[in-house]
Simulated assay, not measured.
Amino acid sequence: MIPRSRPVINESDIARQAGIPLATWRRRDAPAFRQRVASLFPSSRILIYDLAQAHAHLNGLPIPALPVGEHPDDLLNDEESATLLGVAASTVRAYATQGYLSAGTTVYSVRVWTRRDVEERRNNPPGQGKGGGRPPGKGKGPRKAHSYEGDPRLQTAAAALSTAEQASRHHLAAALAHQHGGSTRTWERLLAQASQVSGPAPAVRRSASD
């Protein structure tokens, strides 16, 4: 987590500021640096540090403490957002692609979202109130032709059907679930609905479980 959207820096820029190659910095200086300055995303392979803490270490000064507690401007990566939403990290990325969550921003190749946006999605999940479907108190309106009408995943399922080559529907659904989040069974239903809307897709053979 990047607390309160504070400025950050990665190891490549630290080495550049020190005027030495990154490989040299990592071999010679990184061990001592990492002991004093913790990465803001410990589980990520991309190491990002608080800029003020990094500069303090490089200048031989005491390391300032990071702000404590939660704040709406905290920046969360996909894993932290997933924990807050109670879903998989892949589902967070799918939400951002499908418009169920803001697109977020990229910080040193790490996609992040504000805690404010993630909590708004958590408190207003798709299909429930603000930002997630019909607001409370509104009429039902026109009846849907099917349960997935208007679902952006339906277009993804239709595209997958049109490009699949000799893949069983179950295996195709499993691949879509892995890539976009959600369950394999849900994607099987989406594929079935997509085939009804767009017509049969002869390139896809059905498995015995369909």
Rank of each mutant, 00 (worst) to 15 (best):
S90P: 09
R36I: 05
L66F: 12
D29E: 11
I46Y: 14
A38D: 04
R93G: 05
E79Y: 08
A38V: 09
L76K: 00
L84A: 04
V92Q: 01
V87R: 04
L75S: 01
N59T: 14
Q35T: 15
A30L: 12
A32Q: 14
A89G: 04
S44K: 05
S90H: 13
T83W: 13
R36G: 03
P31V: 05
S81F: 01
S44D: 07
A89M: 00
N77D: 11
D74G: 01
H55Q: 15
I46A: 13
R36F: 07
V87W: 02
G69R: 06
R45T: 10
G69A: 11
Q35C: 14
P72D: 10
D78C: 11
L58M: 12
D74S: 02
E70A: 14
L76F: 06
R26Y: 04
G60S: 12
R34A: 07
R34N: 08
E70V: 10
V92P: 01
L61Q: 15
N77W: 04
L84K: 01
A32K: 13
A38W: 02
G86E: 00
L40E: 00
A94T: 05
A52I: 09
L75Q: 03
A94F: 02
S39E: 01
R36K: 13
L51E: 08
A89S: 10
V92S: 00
A54Y: 03
S43C: 07
S43H: 14
D74E: 06
S43L: 12
P64C: 08
L61E: 09
A94N: 08
Q53I: 05
S39I: 00
G60Y: 10
V92T: 05
A89K: 03
I63M: 02
A52G: 12
L76C: 03
G60F: 10
S44L: 02
L75I: 08
A88G: 12
A65H: 10
G60N: 11
A30R: 08
P67E: 09
L85C: 06
T83M: 14
E79V: 11
R26N: 05
G69M: 08
S43Q: 13
I63T: 03
P72A: 09
E70F: 07
A82E: 00
D78F: 07
L75K: 04
G60A: 09
A32D: 15
R93N: 09
H71A: 03
I46E: 13
A32M: 12
H55K: 15
P64Y: 03
P42D: 06
R34L: 14
P42I: 02
F41L: 06
R45G: 09
H55S: 10
R45V: 09
